[in-house]
Amino acid sequence: MTEERIEAFVRSYGELEREVHKVIVGHDEIVDQVLVALFAGGHVLLEGVPGLGKTLLVRTLAGCLDLSFSRIQFTPDLMPADIIGTNIIVEDADGRRHFQFERGPVFAHILLADEVNRATPKTQSALLEGMQETSATVAGVTHRLPSPFFVLATQNPIEMEGTYPLPEAQLDRFLFKLRVRYPALEQLNEIIDRTTTSHDPSVQRVMTGVETLAARELVREVPMAAHVRQFASTLVMATHSQWEEAPDITRRYIRYGASPRAAQALVLGAKVLALRAGRFAVSVDDIKSIALPVLRHRVILNFEGEAEGIDADRLLSEVLEAVEASFREGKEVFLR
């Protein structure tokens, strides 16, 4: 029974991936990590310059899943009510007037928050409750958001004029931050072929919302050994410069390290990776594979790191190496 569930998950995952790749050329890693976040129950922040297919990816994914989809284009004049909804006065058949809550676009299974850093912090924070609590409160009334609720936000790292960088509290609510890079030459050729002809690729719905939720349940059942959990915790702690065993590079460049949410995200993401590979338990390699998307937006560099233009990915790779070396040393059977 268990094996069948896992086989079904692996099959669905593969089908979903294939459907998305009917439209999206390349970006294998991005597609994979978006799906991991979907099944781990987290949200994704996609960062990349315009024209790389971020919005198309999200729309395609929504098309592959039998789920409702909303898209909000964030602009500086966008208000929280434009996202969550508002109470409006309606008149019933008897002529009596009363307030009725008009739901905003946030009430959808898959929400695309396009260029999220263009809205004001007030509007951005309207998403906070939805992302963490899957609910929205208007005029003292809390409304449940549909489940599964999956937010994919995009932001452009170059055009910073008139933008409002997401506050740390909001960044922490994204399970992954993915960097969408330029496609390779061959991929670019294929993009041209696909998009400049009359051929219009269509995707099929391969999973329903119920199946998605069941997959999320299965993910949480995946067991994890104590030493793997220890590795995940050590990795998160190693991003804290105040930790006494922190690597030197952490002490040098990081001001604030990752939160406990990062440890949760590491484990959940690693569980999805284990299941996707048909394994029944999480390994240290799964944690390592998912470390960068989980941690890159959760560490805050200090002045020295900012001044030297330290890249978070490079920094975290070195932290990961240091933690792994220390971990291997602890498991060394000869030299102890």
């Binding site: 793997v228 590979a277 394994r279 338990a281 390994s283 799964d286």
Partner: peptide, 11 residues
Amino acid sequence: LKDRLATAQDL
């Protein structure tokens, strides 16, 4: 083995 044996021993 992707920590299969060590994990199984732990479990």
